[in-house]
Nucleic acid binder design. Structure first.
Length: 812
RNA sequence: GCGGACGUGGCGGAACUGGCAGACGCGCCAGACUUAGGAUCUGGUAUCUUCGAUGUGGAGGUUCAAGUCCUCUCGUCCGCACCA
């Protein structure tokens, strides 16, 4: 049979019979299966798309056959830099190239043969979508969760735009690899930090990969400690520091401010001014990568100013040093060289006193400096003798009483910067009025349409600024001339809420109808790459919680259960890339074997969550397997015997057992995305069926029944082929309208079981026992076995361990 | 530096709460059917000095029993990285 030819035939059938649409009356029984939506890049669907969408669709089809009303939508994350960069290179407008790519990819999605519900499709670049992205911005603004501030931001000089912290990888732009520089700019931010605690605590109840949860946890970076106030000697200013080791406060030798700290200029003495300014200039010049390198020698400069240790009253010099970061904590550190490696290095270099205040609890422990472990306080006045934990509590509460500090929790997470100085994105719906200041665009005026004719050649400022028709607007408050915000939104804003739009994608009155959304959400199974752990997956959680607090949503988390597919590497073990020339094109295989065989191979040849280097050794084998199934299906189809599920003979019963065991395993394995083992179990069933088929006394009616059941088991894995097999066997309607086989546990109970007999944990014999035998009986059978008796000769059994259904261990 | 994951035949990869290591498949070997076989079917295939011993990166440990748990160690991958 030409498997390839089946692709179109059954795709057409499914479309004609609207097999993939969702019946809205079935929300009680819904199963929202969603894959991360693709970016419409120019080329064909690549292997990564197939590996994500093929197996995920198998899961969706499996769920459909189990009786769920499956909602599996698809869309396009269509705004973004690549289209714009492509436009700059070729002159083709991003809108035109994007729409063309979308059409191509939509066609290609047909090839996968996935049950995508295209009625629910969204394009994030279409005005009827980004209108609501802008609405979301306005809502966040209303709630004080979107705000503007002038701050040092990450600037990519190649992309000519600001990027978020999450998009900076090793000091370089996540997208193009260009080194990121800090630039002081006025930008819009989303206050994701308001949700730091809930984003952290909410992780616990999520059915997500542990690794991903850990990454978010580390990214949020909660650290509990305290804030301590060091009053400046000038009597006016004060330096607040964050510390997790308040117990070491009596050992502070100096205080460090980040060079950019606003207090620096205020407190620096005339004598030190030049040195401080020089150092600041140098720091500003040095790039992020150098500065963040912990291997770098510690440097810094004395400001000439002193502050007072709130606990001891000691006079303490104030330094600036680039190892202190403005962006973390308060941008100031109390330095305790005796108990911190960095402070120690610095103190040695600048000959500052090193005051030990902690000694190890265990007298034999290594107590050399710097001693960074917890311990017992010394040289700390009334706190001497307390251990670290108790001392932190006592010292912070005592500081709290005197108003010089207190308990404080700090998060590493920073607010999400969303302004982009690029063209191809959703315009920020804000207006800057010379009289009224920053004014939101009224909701009724949405969308703020992205103009088509814009000169988007990058020059470091927002392209929209050059478009006068866009920029000039009347202020909605005072009616006088005003200017629009020229920036566009980070595309991650667009993708942070798309799952809310799918189920109600045609709504032109609202982003979504809460009544529908609260029934359809959360997403039951979300499948996509792990690279989004601290970006899309974190942003979406934040947006969901924010909308919940505004009263729109009744759930706390958007994605109840998450699975990451692994990465398929090039045959050389490297990440596929055009420059390495190791890109594998799925078309080479689909054109030869058809879509199902390719999908089946992807699922059988790789562990779904692992991926691995590409290797097509097995694809022929998988194709042969399908042909093997075809032969047996053909055979029993031609016999035209009515199927009968009654197993009579011993051989029937054996096949029946194999069938039910297979059903049980395939059900469980598919449920947790272990497709390779599920397929292995089906192969075993096929082998068992062939064996049965070769018997003299086989029962054709029973074999026909098993064959038909086999086709149902295979349906989610090879949907087009299974439809054809189903027809061959006399099926009148789509196989996906039939129920996925259910294991009959009773059929898995065998009268007899073979178990192993171990002597001193070494297998010495196998015995057959009645399945319902108790421990005593099993022991008796084991001890009467010839082989066992032979091996036991001259030894006495000291202990007998019986493990139900598995083995007996005789300890001699 | 910190955190996490992983390490199993010639290869891809199995092994549920500790319970017969190597499922399934590739490759290889043999047989059958064939004019033929790169088709199909059947059987075999961890290693070894083939009696029964050894085997899950290495070294210890816990246990009647360890791929699985603990300690140390080597290697690979990933995440974070002067986080105070």
């Amino acid at each position: 049979m030409d498997f390839k030819a089946l692709d179109k035939k059954w795709n057409d059938y499914w479309k004609e019979h609207k097999m993939h649409s969702f019946d809205k009356s079935e929300t009680d029984n819904k199963m929202y299966v969603m894959e991360m939506l693709p970016y419409p890049s120019g080329s064909n669907l690549h292997l990564g798309h197939w590996f994500n969408y093929g197996p995920a669709d198998t899961y969706a089809r499996f769920k459909k056959m189990q009786g769920y009303a499956v909602f599996q939508p698809m869309g396009f994350d269509a705004f973004g830099l690549p289209a714009e960069n492509y436009a700059i290179k070729t002159g083709i407008h991003p809108y035109d190239s994007t729409m063309k790519n979308i059409k191509t990819m939509e066609r290609q999605f047909d090839e996968i043969g996935a049950m995508f519900n295209f009625d629910a499709e969204v394009y994030t670049c279409s005005p009827d979508y980004y209108r609501w992205t802008q609405w979301l911005f306005l809502k966040l603004y209303e709630k004080g969760l979107a705000y503007q501030k002038k701050a040092p931001v990450n600037w990519c000089s190649s992309c000519n735009t600001v990027i978020a912290n999450e998009q900076v990888v090793d000091g370089a732009c996540e997208r193009c690899g260009t080194e990121v520089v800090k630039k002081e700019m006025t930008q819009w931010f989303f206050k994701i930090t308001d949700y730091a605690e809930e984003l952290l605590s909410g992780l616990e109840k999520l059915d997500w990969p542990e690794k991903t949860k850990m990454m978010q946890k580390n990214w949020i970076g909660k650290s509990t400690g305290g804030e301590i106030v060091f009053a400046c000697e000038n009597g006016k200013d004060e330096i607040r520091v964050f510390t997790t080791r308040a117990d070491t406060v009596c050992g502070v030798s100096y205080v460090v401010l980040a060079p950019e700290h606003p207090l620096v200029d205020k407190i620096t003495t005339a004598k030190q001014k030049k040195a401080v300014d020089d150092y600041k200039a140098e720091t500003a010049k040095s790039n992020e990568i150098e500065r963040l390198s912990s291997a770098k020698e510690k440097t810094g400069v004395f400001t000439g100013a002193y502050c007072i240790n709130p606990l001891t009253g000691a006079k303490i010099p104030v330094y600036i040093a680039d190892y202190c970061l403005l962006s973390y904590g308060t941008g100031a550190v109390m330095a305790v060289p005796a108990h911190d490696t960095r402070d120690y290095d610095f103190a040695i270099k600048y000959k500052l006193p090193i005051n030990r205040v902690i000694v190890p609890k265990d007298k034999n422990a290594d107590d050399s400096l710097p001693y960074t472990e917890h311990g017992v306080l010394v040289n700390s006045g009334k706190f001497d003798g307390l251990d670290t934990k108790a001392a932190i509590k006592k010292i912070l509460s005592s500081l709290q009483e005197s108003g010089k500090g207190g308990f404080k929790t700090n998060y590493r997470l920073r607010d999400w910067s969303v302004s982009r100085q690029r063209y191809w994105g959703a315009p920020i719906p804000m207006i800057h009025c010379p009289h009224c200041g920053t004014v939101p665009v009224p909701e009724k005026d949405l969308p703020v349409t992205l103009p088509y004719d814009v000169n988007f050649t990058p020059d470091g400022s927002s392209p929209l600024k050059k478009c006068e028709e866009f920029m000039n607007v009347t202020c909605p408050v005072c009616g006088k001339p005003a200017r629009r915000d020229p920036d566009t939104l980070d595309t991650f804003v667009c993708s942070s809420w798309y799952y809310l739009r799918y189920p109600d994608n045609k709504n032109d009155k609202a982003a979504f109808d809460p009544e529908i959304i609260n029934k359809m959400l959360p997403v039951d199974k979300y499948i996509g790459g792990a690279e989004h752990a601290c970006m899309h997956l974190l942003y979406s959680r934040f947006i969901t919680k924010a909308l919940r607090d505004m009263g729109y949503l009744k759930f706390d988390e958007p994605f109840k259960s998450l699975v990451h597919q692994g990465l398929i590497l090039g045959p050389d073990g490297n990440k596929m890339s055009k420059s390495k020339g190791n890109v594998v094109n799925p078309d080479n295989y689909t054109s030869r074997y058809g879509s199902d065989i390719f999908r089946l191979y992807l699922m059988f040849g790789f562990a779904f969550t692992e991926g691995g280097p590409w290797n097509d050794d097995g694809i022929k084998a998988v194709s042969k397997f399908a042909e093997r199934v075809e032969r047996i299906v053909t055979k029993y189809a031609e016999k035209k015997v009515a199927p009968c599920e009654k197993a009579e003979s011993k051989d029937d019963k054996e096949l029946e057992y194999a069938l039910n065991y297979c059903i049980k395993c395939v059900t469980a394995d598919t449920e947790h995305f272990s497709f390779n083992t599920a397929i292995a179990r089906i192969m075993e069933l096929v082998n068992a069926l062939y064996k049965y088929d070769s018997l003299q006394n086989k029962n054709d009616a029973f074999a026909t029944y098993v064959t038909a059941t086999l086709v149902k088991l295979l349906a989610p894995f090879i949907p087009h082929i299974a439809e054809e097999f189903n027809v061959m066997l006399g099926g009148k309607k789509s196989v996906f309208l039939s129920k996925f086989p259910v294991c009959d546990e009773k059929k898995l109970v065998k009268a007899e079981t073979e178990i192993a007999v171990q002597i001193n944990s070494k297998v010495r014999a196998r015995i057959v026992i009645p399945s319902d035998a108790n421990d005593k009986e099993i022991e008796k059978i084991a001890l009467s076995d010839e082989k066992v008796l032979a091996a036991l000769e001259g030894k006495s059994v000291k202990k007998v361990i019986v493990i139900k259904g598995r083995l007996v261990n005789l300890v001699v």
